[in-house]
Computed example of a mutant assay.
Amino acid sequence: MHKPALPSTFDLPARDYVRVVMMETSHSGNIGAVARAMKNMGLGNLCLVNPRAFPDETSYARAAGASDVLDRARVVSSLDEAIEDCVLVMGTSARGRKVPWPVMSPTDAARQVGDYHGKGEVAVVFGRENNGLSNEELQRCHVHIHIPTNPDYSSLNVAMAVQVMCYEIRMEYLRGLENSDSNPQLKAINSPEDPGWDVPPATVSELEGFFSHLEDTLAGIDFHRRDNPRQLMTRLRRLYQRARPDQMEVNILRGILTAVQKSASDPSAGVSSKKQDQTDV
């Protein structure tokens, strides 16, 4: 039995007006993988042109909780039927054309998809696993999408190509939201100063306590000579201040220093034989 669908809001406005079209898919597992890629990015409108096998257990197994996308999928007999009610058709292609055609990167294509919100259906067409879209099929597309892969190994699995496009469509949507600059899905979390970090940043006082503790410990094990300090503590200060530790991290570091001091004062007692106080991390 296939896995039941996981809850989803399909939160993009593009969930319905963007139609992912797969041409004559040979391996039904790829259909399931595409459904998963679509649901990951909030899309849910899948159209299958003459799939070799669908529906089947393999496609649902590969969907991994995106079975609702497969349940909604429409199966048609031709590309004409798949795109007849669309106002924009974009086809993915890895090959150059003798006759130049409008070509976009996935990012630019996603931007154009966003421009069509409220104007009608947009189809993004993906080719067969072995040979992509035919020249005739590509000529039915207003625009070609080229994913700039490694030219020495340019072949993408169809589900990977769908994931790239669905990701770009989602990112375009998130960037277009009101107050997108504060959207937590777009903001990086790099340090305790960033929203979403679990522990507040260490204060200046806490860091100074750590530096004093560090200097005492290094002096106690004869690694640091106070009468000839050179630049050791300056460089260590620069290192730890560059790391921007949070309060828990400073507590952990000071716990390590305390253990080193205890071990240095009683070399005959191994740390492993002592009952150590541990900070809940």
Rank of each mutant, 00 (worst) to 15 (best):
E84S: 02
G44I: 06
S78N: 06
D68Y: 13
D68K: 04
P55N: 03
S93P: 01
T92D: 11
E57F: 12
L12A: 08
V89K: 01
N30E: 07
Y17Q: 05
T58Q: 13
R15D: 10
L46Y: 01
C47Q: 01
P55E: 07
S67C: 15
S26H: 12
D11N: 14
V34T: 01
T58G: 06
S8F: 10
D85R: 03
L79H: 00
V34K: 09
P102R: 04
P13Q: 02
Y60E: 09
V103N: 10
V20Y: 02
R95C: 07
A61K: 11
D71Q: 15
D80I: 07
V76N: 00
G32T: 01
A82V: 12
F10W: 10
S93C: 13
R15E: 08
A33L: 04
G42S: 10
E81A: 15
I83W: 00
K39F: 07
A66H: 13
A37V: 06
A53T: 13
V34C: 01
K39Y: 05
G42F: 10
P102E: 14
A14R: 08
V89N: 03
D16G: 02
M23R: 05
L88S: 07
L48P: 07
S67E: 14
V99Y: 09
L6V: 13
D80Q: 01
G91A: 01
D80L: 03
M38L: 15
S77H: 02
A35T: 00
S67V: 13
F10T: 12
C47R: 11
S77K: 09
T9Y: 11
V49I: 08
M22S: 00
A64L: 14
A53P: 06
V20F: 04
V18L: 01
